[in-house]
Amino acid sequence: MAPFFIIFGVFFLFPTLYSFYVSLTDNKIGREVNFIGLQNYIRLFTTDQHFWPSVKNTFIIVIFTLPTVIVLGILLANFLFNEKRRGRVFFQTANYLPNITSPIAIGIIFSLMFDQKVGIVNKILVKLGIFEQAINWLTAPSYLQRTMLVLMCIWQSLGYYMLMYLSAMTAIPQDLYEAAKVDGANKLQILLRITVPMLKNTTQFLIINSMIGLLQMFDQPYLLMRGLSGSAINTIEKPLETVMVSFYEYSMKTGRLGYGATVTYGLFIIILLCVSITRWVISKKEDPYD
């Protein structure tokens, strides 16, 4: 017991609190440190030209990714639930693979798949007549770049949602389904009236946890932005720049540790707000008469 709390205290609790102190200073590598109070925070929330755009970028990704994977996750889990055992294990294993693959591999494979010259995505879109010719996704309009990242996030996390929902579905009492069938409910009604409400706890857990994770997204957008060649592309608008990417680019790379700590705390505040609002909305829905 004690060793954990020592390690935990020294290497997590202390740095967390110390980061807060650092965020109140103008700490920069190789320079004298001064205490400057809330100045960093004021700058972050008012004049910083990278922070709010990066928050917006991150939110857009979350807003498009989360509902898609939840709906698709429930649907696929529902299909899988009706499969035979062997098929179920195969589909589950195969679809969960993207989730444990290293983000760096995913970043590079997707850069390749979306590449202008050799990417399969361009090839298919041109063949289907959606695009007239292959495009460079990294210099394309913002919405296309965002689509690319959202698709990548969905691809990576869908298996996880499927797995979570599938294991939650096995816990639903079977007699509920039997009763509904006797009453003549069709498949869609069963799905919407029984399965989805019974999965409520899992959905809550998934929404809150994924929100925390997605808001801190770094690896995937960072790698995608750099494309197949691995060198950063300079465009004026950076629709893939999430908060953590901007934290790394503008604070860590330049050694501005004090301001960097402020960015992480700023993000933490935003995460806490989002989680509290979500919790509040969920509890409101649960007891409408409270």
Binding site: F12, P15, T16, S19, Y21, Q216, L257, G260, L267, F268
Partner: peptide
Amino acid sequence: TMMVPFNVSLVGFLIE
């Protein structure tokens, strides 16, 4: 603390 992301402690951890 399960809710506190590691990233929040990152800068403090680096200086440490």
